[in-house]
Design a protein around this nucleic acid. Structure first.
Length: 367
DNA sequence: TAGACGTGGCC
DNA sequence: TGGCCAAGTCT
């Protein structure tokens, strides 16, 4: 398969590019916790955490996650609730469910050793084309491309590629190019260098071209179009939803929470009981919530006045959450779990529901 | 393929 | 302030 873009490589100084890039990387690379060794498990955990997530955010999560689950066996045998708790606040929670499932698979089918073949490693849950290449190259020094957003941005500038990097099929173009460009002597440093360059120098909005170790090989810099690239089509705006949530408690000070379904949004996380409402029903939101608590949980409760609001922005949704408090007058059904404040700390909540509980704790109603 | 899937930071 | 993210994967 030959793309027009691949023809650009015929006159491209591949060796000099590799040398300049890797030389810069070895001198300037950041001292990150997942770079202390090449343990395939730690590389794997770091790559999953780094998906769509900033390095500064990941560092503390990575450190504590590896402390709690230092090996494949430790994670495979760990309690699911504890694993989810360790991911609390990181987002994209299916990442950690897939990671634990995949680690179990490695323990059972591969003797606890992360497979080295692209075919086998790709079968693991949560390991897509990027993560496959990242683990194989970084941990095992195998020359596989690891094409992420950084790599597409950097290479689109270096080679003046005007394809839309938001389109899924575009990634394949960059993979084909990377197979040609990648250093066969040090694929680990090469792949990481490309990403490091994207993170530190060849940044999205104002790239530091004058500090760039490969600017003499950069087509976009030569043409002065580095800020025009890459081409990236716009995302849709998230859809707003009106949500009501209740912090339910009893005379003993226990709080009643609900576990979300095992699939979909915020899967397996816990939350304060809540429901989507709308103005067209003709009832006040507080009454719509009260009706819902009665029918869904058989919970009898006199709700407070509006206690506060929390906005929670997802990639595709916005929750505008109105918060009410209520002391239970009866024992609700088993869909609602009663917990002491101390027990609450063992369960993983989405950030929006952490905020809801903080409003409850900070309220005068709670004394 | 396009949409689902989180969160916090930045300008 | 709102848009755009940041080392993607799954369906």
């Amino acid at each position: 398969m030959v793309y027009e873009e691949k023809n650009k490589l015929k006159s491209f100084p591949i060796q000099a590019f590799q040398q300049d890039l890797i030389h810069w990387y070895l001198a300037e690379k950041r001292d990150l916790p997942w770079r202390k060794d090449q343990d395939p498990y730690k590389v794997w955990v770091s790559e999953i955490m780094l998906q769509q997530t900033r390095v500064d955010t990941v560092i503390p999560y990575f450190t504590s996650f590896i402390n709690k689950f230092p090996t494949i066996d430790a994670l495979a045998d760990a309690n699911e609730e504890e694993v989810l708790k360790a991911w609390e606040g990181l987002g994209y929670y299916s990442r950690v469910r897939n990671l634990q499932a995949a680690v179990k698979e490695v323990k059972e089918s591969y003797g606890g050793v992360v497979p080295k073949s692209p075919e086998e490693i790709s079968k693991l849950k949560g390991v897509g084309p990027y993560t496959k290449g990242a683990i194989l190259s970084i941990a095992y020094n195998i020359p596989e491309p690891a094409v992420d957003g950084n790599v597409m941005r950097v290479l689109s500038r270096i080679l003046s590629i005007w394809e839309d990097i938001a389109k899924p099929k575009t990634r394949k173009i960059f993979e084909d190019i990377t197979y040609e460009l990648i250093s066969k002597d040090d694929p680990s440093s090469f792949n990481q260098a490309l990403m490091e360059l994207g993170a530190l120098i060849c940044t999205p909005t104002s790239p530091s071209c004058l500090l760039c170790p490969v600017r003499e090989h950069c087509s976009a810099f030569e043409e002065g179009v580095q800020t025009e690239l890459p081409i990236k089509s716009k995302k849709k705006k998230p859809k707003p939803l009106q949500i009501t949530a209740a912090v339910l408690y009893d005379a003993n000070g226990n709080v009643y929470i609900h576990k979300r379904p095992s699939t979909g949004l915020l899967a397996n996380l816990w939350e304060h009981p809540n429901v989507e409402v709308n103005a067209e029903v003709g009832k006040p939101y507080r009454e719509q919530l009260s009706d819902y608590l009665q029918s869904e949980y058989h919970a009898k409760v006199e709700l407070s006045e509006l206690a506060g609001t929390v906005e929670h922005i997802f990639s595709h949704l916005i929750w505008n959450i109105s918060i009410y408090f209520g002391e239970l007058k009866n024992t609700p059904n088993q869909m609602l779990v009663s917990l002491t404040e101390e027990e609450l700390n063992k369960y993983a909540f989405p950030v929006s529901h952490q905020k809801i509980y903080q409003i409850f704790k900070g309220s005068a109603l709670n004394v």
